[in-house]
């Protein structure tokens, strides 16, 4: 059973079509990257999943059906630009928000201790939120999101305000949660994190999905006619090559219009003046794909 299913979901606010025929699925043990420029409709889509907003039409199924109060207890949500209660102590905030997820106080205290120690916040548990740094806020919010052991985790810019050490810590925790079979939806503009962590991406622009697929498949789809080669020889003088660029002992070879990677590989093998150490199809980064596809659809 898919953890999340959206089928032909639409939502309009006045003249703005915030979600236009949105469809995708999220499976247990999968991280979905929900991508898009600012104002694309990502947050509206998340809010509809959480039942904060109702779609105008279409179907949303969470854990196999419509949202219920019991199901809300199985979801962890980390919105962007959060502040929490500045005048309350960290531990009190954690206990209050976990109680709203149906956690018993004793269980929450034990779990909170584990997470606070893991994220180096234990000694700050009795401080008011207003006394914590931005990074500490972020970690506290992350604890609130996962403390109740949710089966669906939705995180919006989870690495915002974190230093590299804490970024790695949160990243690893998310990967661990995936390996435990949790479904994770991650919305972020940090494309290298998406590339490294996500199994699947959905790119929304102007409320519409303009790209959808597994990360490797999407990168291959946008690979184009470029290969990466390392070794020795006159790579830039081969007839199948339109453009050759040399970076850090690696050649990026853009093929001529009628040439294929197979043609080039055959030529490289047969050419005695050339020795090959590495040959691969050059895959564009998700960042490049994002800029290209959003630019094209504008």
């Amino acid at each position: 059973m898919s953890t999340v299913v959206l089928e032909h979901v639409n939502k309009r606010f006045g003249k703005t079509q915030a979600a236009n025929d949105i469809s995708f699925r999220v499976e247990p043990g999968e991280i979905l990257g929900l991508l898009g420029p600012n104002g694309a409709g990502k947050t509206t889509t998340i809010r509809m999943m959480l039942d904060i907003l109702r779609p105008d039409n279409g179907r949303i199924a969470i854990f196999g059906g419509p949202m219920t109060e019991e199901k809300k207890n199985r979801i962890g949500y980390l919105p962007e630009e959060r502040g929490l209660y500045a005048d309350l102590k960290l531990m009190d905030v954690i206990l209050y928000l976990s109680s709203l997820k149906g956690m018993r106080k004793e269980t929450a205290v034990t779990a909170a201790e584990t997470f606070l120690k893991k994220l180096d916040l234990w000694e700050h548990k009795d401080k008011k939120m207003s006394a914590l740094s931005r990074g500490m806020h972020q970690k506290a919010q992350f604890i609130v999101t996962v403390l109740h052991d949710p089966d669906l985790i939705i995180v919006d810019e989870p690495f915002s305000g974190l230093d590299p050490v804490n970024t790695e810590l949160i990243r690893q925790m998310l990967l661990d949660l995936r390996s435990q079979g949790k479904a994770i939806i991650m919305s972020t503009h940090q494309m290298h994190q998406v590339e490294a962590m996500c199994d699947h991406i959905v790119l929304i622009h102007h409320g519409k999905i303009i790209l959808d697929g597994a990360v490797d498949e999407v990168r291959r789809r946008f690979a184009g006619n470029t290969v990466e080669v390392s070794g020795t020889g006159p790579f830039d003088q081969l007839p199948q090559i339109q453009l050759a660029q040399h970076h850090n002992r690696t050649w990026q070879l853009t093929l001529a219009e009628d040439a294929t990677p197979n043609d080039l590989l055959r030529e490289l093998v047969q050419n005695d003046a050339i020795t090959i150490e590495h040959f691969s199809i050059a895959l564009p980064s998700l960042n490049e794909i994002f800029i290209r596809i959003v630019g094209e659809s504008d």
Binding site: L50, I52, Y77, P79, E81, K101
Partner: peptide, 17 residues
């Protein structure tokens, strides 16, 4: 006003009606 502007309200609404 605070809960709305810092989006704590969203976290709350992800937990209850």
């Amino acid at each position: 006003v605070d809960e709305k502007e810092n989006r704590t309200m969203e976290i709350l609404l992800a937990s209850l009606k």
